[in-house]
Design a protein around this nucleic acid. Structure first.
Lengths: 231, 231
DNA sequence: CGGGATCCCCCGAGATACTG
DNA sequence: CAGTATCTCGGGGGATCCCG
């Protein structure tokens, strides 16, 4: 049985009817990163009950947001893939993610970072107005056990899961990467004190930092030691 | 007791934790239009149980999204007003509303149009790239029993609830206004067949139509014989 | 009359076990 | 691997009641 309608001829109400169920946005976030199998989704969303995931996938399929691809063959796996209709959610989910990130400073007790959460955060933070580098640059970003890669093209930014075969620069960090995206973490100092670890062409870090921006709501008053300027 | 966390360091998860409860987005939509009293919200959201509205308002207040203003004085009314933090949701809710409107053609059985839904739909549909008129134009838009007004300034578009004292043009329509926003309703023909009723400076209709755009997902090819198909 | 609080019922979510 | 089955429990739907 589907959730009751809100009874209004309203785009936001329609969206809320399709997306408002618990875990639905998280499932879509994961599928926006890449098509996933059932168990991929389970492991990427710790805490989701299996019956709830099962129910959500059926509802999303019925709403025309998810396609279920049963692969017959060697690996009899089932892959869930977003429809174009669901992919059109990207701008809206990015806006929501930016809003939610505006007062997300550090992980709360027990909060983890997943591949999908990192890709989602970076995609949401791509600045349209960023100066693009003269030539393509590639990065690998690692936090804890998740790795994603970023491509700075001369005309676009791409974020995708997994490592990059030949990145110009490998950035290894912790949740403090959040501050780098906000512009409240001085890159050179962060490298100096080990918050950020670089491997490769360190000079490419500036282009990376300039390509993203996820501001905090109330720019925290400069920490005494680091009077960091913000944009 | 608040809803459980998703356990991830993720802006979208934070947003979902604050906004994902049933009716929350609708309450915020109404408050984005104007501060409201408890009974205003009840009447603007037919079907919401009073205990749910009460609970949502408390949660929103605790999350720093709503301020409760108890007016002592002649009218001892309580007014709920959004905080700046909640007003920052506007772009995200607009994006969601556009997405939800993309396959919202006609009202489903029993669906109504409220003041907040109309203001919200128009605000979500403001095109940033629209040509602005040489001088300010004002409109009053009426559907069924709700009336809102629109101001086309030379550098911005404003949508607000209620009538306008001296509109250049009064537009009276039905849900087919949705098709006008999508660009699939020919204004001159709609006026001719009574779908749109104008009162005032009819020549201002073009500027109005050009200022908004809420496309359908699959743009239905302009049906030459029957311009209007769905209802 | 505005602004809720209280009650009951039931569905949906959480947790876990089990199966094709 | 990809779910279904079952149970419990909290939260939403709906109606009514209460208080200043």
């Amino acid at each position: 049985m589907r959730t009751r309608s809100y009874g209004q001829f309203c785009g936001l109400a329609r969206a809320a009817e399709m997306l408002g169920q618990r875990w639905t946005l998280m499932v879509l976030r994961d599928l926006l990163v890449a098509p996933r199998r059932y168990t991929d989704l389970l492991s990427g969303l710790p805490g989701i009950p299996t019956n709830v995931l099962s129910t959500r996938l059926k509802e999303l399929e019925q709403d025309g947001l998810v396609m279920r691809e049963a692969r017959s063959g060697a690996d009899r796996s089932v892959v869930y893939r977003l429809t174009p209709r669901a992919e059109a959610l990207q701008p809206a989910l990015d806006a929501l993610a930016r809003w939610g990130a505006a007062d997300m400073h550090a992980p709360r007790e027990g909060e983890i970072i997943t591949e999908a959460s990192l890709v989602s955060a970076l995609r949401a933070g791509i600045r349209a107005d960023a100066p693009r580098p003269a030539s393509r640059r590639t990065y690998q970003v690692a936090i804890a056990d998740v790795t994603v890669h970023v491509t700075l093209d001369t005309d676009a930014v791409h974020v995708a899961p997994g490592p990059h075969p030949h990145p110009h620069l490998i950035i290894t960090a912790g949740p403090e990467l959040r501050d780098l995206l906000a512009g409240t973490l001085d890159p050179t100092q962060a490298v100096a004190d080990g918050t950020l670890q670089l491997s490769g062409d360190s000079s490419a870090l500036g282009d990376f930092a300039a390509s993203f921006h996820v501001p905090y709501r109330d720019e925290p008053s400069a920490t005494p030691a680091t009077p960091e300027t913000r944009r």
